[in-house]
Amino acid sequence: MTATTPRPTFEQSGPRLPVVESIRVDRVHPRARIAGSVRATLAIILSLISLIPVFWIVLTAFKTPTDVTAIPPKLIFEPSLTGFVSLLSDMRLLSQAEQEERSQQPDLSWVDQIALQIGRAINGPSQYARQLGNSVIIAGTSTLLSVVLGLLSAYAFSRFNIPAKGDLLFFILSTRMLPPVVVTIPIFLMYRSIGLHDTHFGLIMLYTVFNLSFSVWLLKGFIDEIPREYEEAALVDGYTRLQTFFRIVIPQARTGIAATTVFCLIFAWNEYAFALMLTTQNARTAPPSIPSILGSGGIEWNTIAAGALLFLIPVVIVTFALRQHLLRGVTFGAVRK
């Protein structure tokens, strides 16, 4: 009997009080859809506006000095590499006669031809080429050091009971909160007395220290997420701690290591205050030298833009490669997606 009874329909078993209106959550109201596309359009417009300065750097880098100072600003122009050539080479002005003589020479390289367009000849590589090289050496080495040391400490902090762990971690973090200018005075004195002023090693160590706090915190977050069971299983199988660290933890923490590396690299790459105060000639990196790129006739904006662009390209590539980890990186590992 009960089997044949039809199941009560919604109308029969529904709420006791009559439903006057219902809210449907599965279908989007047309008004909401319009609002959504308005929001999307607005977001796109705003982000395009925010990219104008970056876009302008790119354009300026390919302009000639006369195009840069054109009024009104030029959007369409004949691209030229003069900015890059004068950035990377040391040049001298040619007289009218020399210019004509040089333009007759058939075996001029393309670089020389560009230099000739602005009436100059190339003597050799410029200071900036050297400073860019310094940047690469210093940022690269310090990043490697801080990631390796950070990885070791992060693993120890993540997996073992360490006395006063919280205090130690906070101490490590606090070293990064100091304004660089505060730390520089004693470091400057210390470096001067032990002969580390204006050396690659001095700057490398300083950047390593500044990045260490960051890399310990960030990597600890990543290692905390690796289940301990993997290591325990390996330990039971007779691996030593060191072996589990190299064969289990490091491969598992790969993305974390990659993200940390790149954030440390960006910091060391962009760092300005320390480099300005602790280097003069030998170990000077690119950031403090870009503002001092001056041409013979006032500021050569296209050269500065070329310098900035060369300097920015790696960072922009990295930004895209890193977008999954950006949030974590910029907040010291405090916030995860």
Binding site: G36, S37, R39, A40, A43, I44, L46, S47, S50, L51, P53, V54, W56, I57, T60, V68, I266, W269, N270, Y272, P287, P288, I290, P291, W301, I304, A305, G307, A308, F311, L312, V315, V316, V318, T319, F320, R323, L326, V330
Partner: peptide
């Protein structure tokens, strides 16, 4: 929305740049 991830990443570029280089360029 379509491309929102890309747009978000694009807007993040400025903060990865070197402030002194950015400052210098804004002078222009």
């Amino acid at each position: 929305f379509k491309g929102s991830g890309f747009i978000t990443t694009l807007t993040l570029i400025p903060m990865m740049l070197s402030p002194v280089v950015v400052g210098m360029f804004w002078k222009l």
